[in-house]
Amino acid sequence: MKHIDDPVRLQKEILKKTCYLAVIPVLYSLVSGEWATLLGLLFGLLIGTLIFRLRLINIERSLQMSEGKATSFIRNRYFIEYAIYLAVLLVARKNPAVNFLATAIGLFFIKFTVIGWVIIDLIRDAFNQKLESFKR
C-alpha cells in the first residue's frame, strides 16, 4: 500500500479510489433511471466520507491522552457515530424518495475500497514473486 507513513495522504488516496469505484453503481442507477437508488447511494457516500474524516481527527486527539482516557474517549465517540448512522438510516427509511438499501451500501463503500485495494496488492505481490523466481 502507498503512503503508509502519512495518514492524511492515505486518506486522500482512499477517497480518490472510492470515487473511481463508486462510478459503477452511480452510472448503473443513472442509466436505468432509478432516482431513489441514485439519491440513496449519494447520501450514503456523503455521510460515509464525512465520518471517515471525523475518525482521523478523533484518533489524532486521542493520542495525546493517557491509556484509560483514550479508551473511553474513542468508545464514546463510536456511540456518537452510531447515533448518526441511526438517524441517517431512519431518514432513508421514512423518506420514499431515498432507497434504504442503497443508503446502507453507500455507507459501506469505503470499506469495500480498502479490502479490494489490499487484496489486489496481495495478488500483485504474489505474482511478482512468482515472476522473480521464474527469472532465476
Partner: peptide, 14 residues
C-alpha cells in the same frame, strides 16, 4: 514491517 502488519491485519479483519 509495517506494510506486512497492516496487510495481515486487514485480511484477518475481513
Amino acid at each position: 514491517a509495517r506494510g506486512n502488519v497492516i496487510t495481515t491485519m486487514l485480511l484477518g479483519q475481513a
